[in-house]
Design a protein around this nucleic acid. Structure first.
Length: 588
RNA sequence: CGGGGUGUAGCUUAGUCUGGUAGAGCGCCUGGUUUGGGACCAGGAGGUCGUAGGUUCGAAUCCUAUCGCCCCGACCA
């Protein structure tokens, strides 16, 4: 048991002005964290307890799933990253480690970086330690601090420069086995989040810089989330918007026949979809082809969409480039022969087709049938452009952003969209890293094979805040049982009264024996202050002891997530407390 | 990095437009009265007004630069 006067829980009546959302305000007000700088937070004693509880729950689920704990350095030799498959994309988010000396600085490349994740460390380790199929599969995990130079830290612990993460890495002999490892982790994640009292949904996700063949994200629905998820209740489909697809183009769709001969017409000054949709041209956006130019690892390529659609940049990842960015006007003109606003992909109009890495068309342009597009000649467009006959397409794909209301692929019901916080992500990596680092094993036929990898992350500190975001009311935090810093708060309204102190201690021992952590508020504060703080810090079970009740021979029992207050005879104290704790623990 | 805000005591802030040498509430300290939902009275401590220049007799206030922080976008657990 812990006495409030013996620990440090600095609660605040008002929230600091730089906190915007409920969970961030409550973390500060309940004295769980304090800010050092943007995206940098100190865990105060109570906050640290929550962090440890969540870590421990995670550890238990990882162990149960057969993962093996280890601890890798936070500081990485930069060579590990330079030798890896994503140095170009990942270096931007890494902090370089330098000596703080004021003397001669180094002019070479940085020698060390702070680890943002550990594929580049674990893969070489496993390469040198595991060489036989007999030692596979293996799944290693750790819980520790990660460092990322976030472009914009936000919302307290939600997106921080330094945060606590559980990361796991699986190594399998075969692809089938890797899928088994992946599914084990997925199940462990669901169990873990459930024990944290979090409602999460697993969604199909984009693999991003991490790479790999497929992935799922674990999302906590919340308006303050950074991600949009797309889902269908009928079919059970759910995906991150970056990855989501819809059944916009029917399976049996047949392309429209050409409507007439290609025809060039002058459109002076028209450089936007909207301008062409307006009078006097009046070409509806869904009858236009949108031609975007991107640079993939230095080589330009085109993406063709319906005029009314938006490009989902994450989907360009499927094209296999390391780095993609929009091309500049200077890069576009020599290749296409026109400035942005008059671009198109009609056969024969592209000035230097050979310079392109490809022309990638979104399936939805089938719906345009015959439409209008830029003529690759400034101030001119082409009409009667037929998708099949006229466009010079090298590859079809899904590149557009799905919108709410579009039909689900399976059920045909309208898709819904919601904001969510990403608290976990599992990736089936494949051999991207094992190939680069040469992580191979020998099978029972003396043959060498690449190990098949998976990686699995949980934002421990983000999960902490997500719990608060999902579980609070006007008075404060409402902690789920297993992640509360303490499960039971005993409020002693008369700490100088020996009988009250004695009863508090007796109940604390009973609660502890039943498996709960107990905090006793023994401060010399007025009752109002204690009740307000009790609600604010949000421990699940509150037991109130005071002189007034003791005269009647009772104390009070109240659950943070309920309104009712139960009066309990002092004589029954130990039994009632024991039972309450056991009930709560078994239900949670 | 682009756009929008904002920096005054530990926290929340007034004062800034219209320059005259900083005020309140909470918290903290002392004493008293209180004591079941953030008490009251009296007294007290605490501020280089983010920083550096400039204008001016005089700058929290005007100008310039710079830094921090918050929000919106790209990035991520």
């Amino acid at each position: 048991m812990k006495y409030w006067s013996q620990t440090f829980i600095p609660t605040l009546k008002e929230s600091p002005s730089d906190a915007e959302i409920a969970s961030h305000k409550l973390l500060l007000r309940a004295g769980l964290v304090r800010k050092l700088g943007g995206g940098l937070y100190t865990f105060m004693p109570a906050g640290l307890r929550v962090l440890r509880k969540i870590s421990e729950l995670c550890r238990e689920e990882m162990d149960r799933a057969g993962a093996i704990e280890l601890a890798m350095p936070f500081i990485h030799p930069v060579e590990n990253w330079q030798d890896g498959p994503r140095w170009a994309a990942a270096r931007e988010i890494m902090y370089r480690v330098d000596h703080a000396g004021a003397g001669k600085g180094r002019s070479r490349e940085p020698e060390f970086v702070l680890g943002p994740t550990h594929e580049e460390v674990i893969t070489p380790l496993v390469k040198s330690e595991i060489t036989s199929y007999r030692d596979l599969p293996k799944n290693f995990y750790q819980i520790g601090t990660k460092f990322r130079n976030e472009i914009r830290p936000r919302y307290g612990l939600m997106r921080a420069r330094e945060f606590v993460m559980k990361d796991a890495y699986s190594f399998d002999a075969t692809d089938e086995s890797a899928v088994v490892s992946y599914n084990k982790m997925k199940a462990a994640y669901l169990a873990f989040f459930a024990r944290c009292g979090l409602k999460t949904i697993a969604v199909e996700a984009d693999t991003g810089v991490m790479g790999g063949s497929f992935s799922h994200e674990f999302m906590v629905p919340a308006p303050v989330g950074d991600d949009d998820i797309v889902y269908c209740d009928e079919s059970g489909y759910s995906a991150n918007r970056e990855k989501a697809t819809s059944g916009l183009v029917p399976k049996d769709f047949t392309d429209a026949a050409p409507a007439g001969a290609l025809e060039e017409f002058a459109t002076p000054g028209v450089v936007t979809i909207a301008a062409l949709a307006a009078a006097p041209y009046s070409v509806a956006a869904d009858k236009q082809f949108k031609t975007l130019v991107y640079m993939g690892d230095g080589k330009p390529f085109l993406v063709i969409l319906r005029g009314c659609d938006e490009l989902e940049e994450a989907k360009l990842g499927a094209l296999g480039f390391q780095l993609c960015r929009p091309a500049t006007a200077e890069e576009i003109e020599p290749v296409l022969g026109a400035k942005p606003g008059s671009l198109g992909a009609v056969k024969g109009t592209i000035k230097n087709f050979a310079a392109l890495a490809g022309v990638f068309a979104d399936h939805a342009i089938h719906l345009v049938g015959n439409g209008t597009t830029g003529a690759n000649k400034d101030g001119f467009h082409l009409r009667n452009v037929n998708v099949v006959r006229d466009l010079q397409i090298t590859q079809w794909g899904d590149f557009r952003t799905v919108r709410a209301g579009e039909p689900d692929v399976k059920s045909g019901h309208p898709l819904k969209m919601a904001r969510a916080i990403e608290v976990g992500h599992v990736f089936k990596l494949g051999t991207k890293y094992s190939e680069k680092f040469g992580a191979v094993y020998t099978d029972d036929q003396k043959q060498s094979h690449l190990m098949v990898m998976g990686c699995y992350g949980i934002g421990i500190s983000r999960t902490l805040q997500a719990v608060v975001e999902q579980s609070n009311d006007a008075d404060g935090i409402v902690w789920p049982w297993h992640v509360a810093p303490w499960q039971v708060l005993i409020v002693n309204l008369d700490p100088q009264d020996a009988a009250a102190a004695e009863l508090c201690k007796k109940m604390a021992l009973a609660a502890e024996a039943a498996g709960a952590d107990v905090l006793i508020d023994d401060r010399a504060e007025r009752p109002g202050v204690k009740f307000k703080d009790a609600d604010l810090i949000g421990l699940p079970l509150r037991l109130t002891v005071g002189g007034r009740g003791l005269k009647e021979g009772i104390f009070e029992l109240k659950w943070r997530n309920a309104k009712e207050v139960t009066k309990v005879p002092v004589a029954d104290a130990e039994g009632v407390v024991t039972q309450a704790v056991r009930d709560a623990a078994s239900k949670a």
